[in-house]
């Protein structure tokens, strides 16, 4: 196996996540695309960890930290989306323009 093949797959997943963040209107689906980007980063971390044959497995530990932070992010993010939906009766990101001049 080559290191490049894992990075290319990670790049494909990350780019699709960027596409999703830019095109989706629903806030829940924007969060879902962010999750795809985080999964891509995890693949890169683990692939480089195996590539440099890290004795303390730093890349794997950091991907575990990313998983924990992603879980926290989804929890808080969905709570905020829920609050916005309760106040404005819509979870579409382009209708949330209260701070626009």
């Amino acid at each position: 196996m080559m290191i490049s093949q894992f990075i290319i797959v990670g790049a494909a997943l990350f780019s699709l996540g960027v596409y999703g963040v830019l095109t989706r209107r629903n806030a829940v689906l924007v969060l879902l695309s962010v999750e795809l980007m985080l999964a891509a980063v995890n693949i890169n971390f683990v692939a480089f960890d195996v590539y440099v044959n890290d004795q303390i497995a730093g890349g794997q530990i950091f991907s575990l930290f990313i998983i924990a932070v992603a879980a926290a992010e989804v929890g808080i993010g969905l709570a905020i989306v829920l609050l916005i939906f309760r106040n404005r009766h819509s979870a579409n990101v382009d209708e949330l323009d209260l701070m626009k001049l």
Binding site: F6, I7, A12, S15
Partner: peptide
């Protein structure tokens, strides 16, 4: 973005092997 990452990676690492 995908093209940028792919080109830089392939130029940087080439066919460096990885043993699981």
């Amino acid at each position: 973005l995908f093209a940028l990452i792919t080109v830089t990676t392939v130029r940087g690492f080439g066919d460096a092997n990885l043993t699981a």
